Computed example of a mutant assay.
Amino acid sequence: MDITLIIAIATMGGLGFIFAGALAFADKKLRVEENPKIAEVNEVLPNANCGACGNAGCYDFAVKVVNGEAKINGCPVGGQEVVDEIARILGMESSQSVKLVARILCNGGLAEAKFKEGVEYIGPESCAVKTVVAGGEKLCLYGCLGGGDCVEACQFGAIFMNENGLPVVVEELCTGCGQCVEACPRGVIEIHPEDRELFVFCKNHDDPKRSKEVCKVACISCGICARKSDGSIVMKDFLPEIDYSKLDISKIPFDKCSTKAIRFVHPEKAAEILKEEKIEVKAN
């Protein structure tokens, strides 16, 4: 064998041995021992890596929880069971997990929204594409586009499109992860506590005349709800905005809203709440 080749092989082998030894020494001397509780917490997390907790993933959340940088009830996907398990691992008292759900704040479906005359959209049905290509078929530039991007984004099968071309949330399956919110280019989906019932089901910021022209159920910015709400509702850019910290349901003039844009999510719950508050509301 050529002496040059032998020297080259010996040199490379020797260097490999030296570098391996150096890495082993560095690993031993510089290693930062990880708190074993991080792995335990990560194990009980749903590992959806959806980002609902505001962190890069479940492992990142586990690190912050163990280090005291995040609350033990910060994972909306895991629910109360995960909160209890994390509390057990960390030797803490468990806290209440608030269930979050997605709310679709637009009522302008195929039957309510008005469409552009003489315009036929031919192309991808994705909302992300429609909003770029002429803003879709509807005259309203703020409402649901009906492409179902939110359905595709949901990892838990908690959203489907109904016959009226609007998304519907299956609350029992919704984890409040917020993926549907990110997928919606119109911002008509928001994440709220499950027990929050009152919303303005419209995102239209057009003036009253224009809003009537584009959708039958759009808020027409009359401002009655704001004037009667004792400060819990203010008008911003032609649309009511609710301050839930000040909300007094008894002050809201539901019967005065001609398009029923401001209402409860669940009519059956609304009836109970209004009865308790001794509020009379005219039938729709």
Score class of each variant (00 low, 15 high):
residue 2 D to Y: 05
residue 5 L to K: 15
residue 15 L to Q: 02
residue 15 L to R: 01
residue 16 G to R: 11
residue 16 G to Q: 10
residue 16 G to H: 12
residue 17 F to Q: 02
residue 17 F to D: 01
residue 17 F to G: 10
residue 18 I to C: 05
residue 20 A to Y: 02
residue 20 A to S: 04
residue 25 F to W: 07
residue 26 A to D: 05
residue 26 A to K: 09
residue 34 E to M: 15
residue 37 K to P: 06
residue 39 A to V: 14
residue 39 A to E: 15
residue 39 A to K: 15
residue 40 E to P: 04
residue 41 V to Y: 00
residue 43 E to I: 11
residue 43 E to A: 13
residue 43 E to R: 14
residue 45 L to M: 13
residue 48 A to V: 12
residue 48 A to W: 01
residue 50 C to P: 00
residue 50 C to R: 00
residue 50 C to H: 00
residue 51 G to T: 07
residue 52 A to F: 07
residue 56 A to L: 11
residue 58 C to D: 02
residue 61 F to A: 11
residue 62 A to W: 03
residue 64 K to N: 15
residue 73 N to Y: 00
residue 75 C to F: 04
residue 75 C to G: 08
residue 77 V to P: 06
residue 78 G to S: 03
residue 80 Q to P: 02
residue 87 A to R: 04
residue 88 R to W: 12
residue 95 S to T: 15
residue 96 Q to F: 08
residue 97 S to H: 11
residue 99 K to M: 06
residue 99 K to E: 07
residue 100 L to N: 15
residue 101 V to I: 15
residue 106 C to H: 03
residue 114 K to W: 09
residue 118 G to M: 01
residue 119 V to D: 02
residue 121 Y to H: 06
residue 121 Y to A: 07
residue 123 G to K: 06
residue 124 P to M: 12
residue 124 P to E: 14
residue 125 E to Y: 08
residue 126 S to R: 06
residue 126 S to W: 05
residue 126 S to M: 02
residue 129 V to W: 01
residue 129 V to G: 00
residue 131 T to H: 12
residue 132 V to C: 00
residue 135 G to I: 07
residue 135 G to L: 07
residue 135 G to F: 05
residue 140 C to L: 04
residue 141 L to W: 01
residue 142 Y to N: 12
residue 142 Y to C: 09
residue 146 G to H: 05
residue 147 G to V: 08
residue 148 G to T: 13
residue 149 D to V: 14
residue 149 D to P: 10
residue 152 E to S: 14
residue 154 C to G: 02
residue 155 Q to H: 01
residue 159 I to K: 01
residue 164 N to Q: 13
residue 168 V to N: 07
residue 171 E to N: 10
residue 174 C to A: 06
residue 174 C to K: 04
residue 179 Q to T: 03
residue 179 Q to D: 03
residue 181 V to F: 05
residue 184 C to S: 08
residue 184 C to R: 04
residue 189 I to S: 04
residue 189 I to W: 02
residue 194 E to Y: 09
residue 195 D to T: 07
residue 196 R to G: 11
residue 196 R to I: 12
residue 197 E to T: 13
residue 198 L to D: 05
residue 199 F to V: 14
residue 199 F to R: 06
residue 200 V to I: 13
residue 202 C to D: 04
residue 205 H to N: 12
residue 205 H to T: 12
residue 207 D to S: 11
residue 209 K to P: 00
residue 216 K to C: 03
residue 218 A to M: 10
residue 219 C to K: 05
residue 219 C to G: 10
residue 221 S to W: 00
residue 225 C to L: 10
residue 226 A to W: 00
residue 229 S to I: 06
residue 232 S to E: 06
residue 234 V to H: 03
residue 236 K to G: 02
residue 245 S to C: 09
residue 246 K to C: 04
residue 248 D to S: 11
residue 258 S to F: 09
residue 259 T to R: 13
residue 260 K to V: 12
residue 265 V to R: 10
residue 267 P to T: 14
residue 268 E to I: 15
residue 270 A to P: 02
residue 272 E to R: 06
residue 275 K to Y: 02
residue 276 E to K: 10
residue 277 E to K: 13
residue 279 I to A: 03
residue 279 I to G: 02
